[in-house]
């Protein structure tokens, strides 16, 4: 029997006495492509940091591939929302992606690591730019470098915080094509405050605003509706009368 990628049980988390996450339960299976949507400040990034083991829950349990998140970090790839670095930071595309292959203290990067970096840069069509200084890239190119950095060690779970934020609208479909390809090999969880964009591409959706509302399988909840609307639809419109998914 396979182990779930992520298993979260009754997790509470407080910041400064304020409950940011309230009794969260969530399961992500090995081949899931899940979007967590919700308003800014609803705890989306916090949830990802729990899965990554950067934050610890005040109560409840988080397991990644059946173990403590910190112990499963080698199985996770992470795309942060912002990378805040000095514009002249002395690092090029190749070296940036290489940091995703970190092995531990006193262990250098080997030929295999360098090959893995070149391969993932090929996949991202970024190999020509491998020697380019990182801030001499466009926003979309930079995002591809950070995705490359996240997947360069073949993670089993890809975690993305607002991946669409710095991608041009016309790049969205190629982004989702890439995600579909990656999803054959790994589970993916992304968070987004943009409810419309994600709905037609992911297969599971959850809404997070301190509490988590799980809407389950997108296809099951959307198939009938698409027939009525004859177009891809925004699945969730919180607070707007034409609610499509069932009430929370």
């Amino acid at each position: 029997m396979s182990v779930e990628a992520v298993k979260i049980r009754n997790v509470d988390l407080k910041y400064d006495e304020q409950l940011v996450l309230d009794d969260i339960c969530l399961d992500i299976d090995e081949k899931d492509f899940m979007a967590v949507i919700g308003p800014n400040g609803g705890g989306k990034s916090t949830l990802l940091k729990l899965i990554l083991g950067i934050l610890k829950p005040d109560s409840g349990e988080v397991q990644v591939f059946g173990r403590d998140p910190v112990k499963s970090r080698h199985l996770m790839g992470y795309l942060p929302q912002h990378v805040n670095f000095d514009p002249d930071f002395p690092i090029n595309v190749f070296e940036t992606v290489l940091t995703g292959r970190y092995h531990g203290l006193f262990k250098g990067y080997n030929a295999e690591d360098r090959e893995a970096v070149l391969k993932v840069l090929d996949d991202m069509e970024m190999r020509d730019l491998k020697d380019r200084q990182i801030s001499k890239l466009s926003g979309g190119q930079m995002q591809r470098v950070f995705i490359a950095r996240a997947i360069v060690r073949d993670p089993k779970l890809l975690i993305m915080d607002e991946p669409m934020a710095s991608i041009d609208p016309e790049m969205q479909s190629s982004f989702y094509n890439l995600m579909a390809r990656l999803n054959e090999k790994m589970a993916i969880i992304l968070v987004s405050h943009d409810v419309g964009a994600v709905s037609t591409h992911v297969d599971k959706i959850a809404c997070l605003n301190r509490k988590l509302f799980y809407h389950g399988d997108v296809e099951n909840s959307a198939n009938g509706l698409e027939e009525i609307y004859h177009c891809p639809i925004e699945l969730i419109s919180h607070g707007i009368p034409h609610r499509i998914l069932k009430d929370h």
């Binding site: 992470y78 670095f85 940036t96 995703g100 292959r101």
Partner: peptide, 10 residues
Amino acid sequence: FDEEFSSVTG
């Protein structure tokens, strides 16, 4: 370069 990412890589 990226403290948070580096901690995720170990």
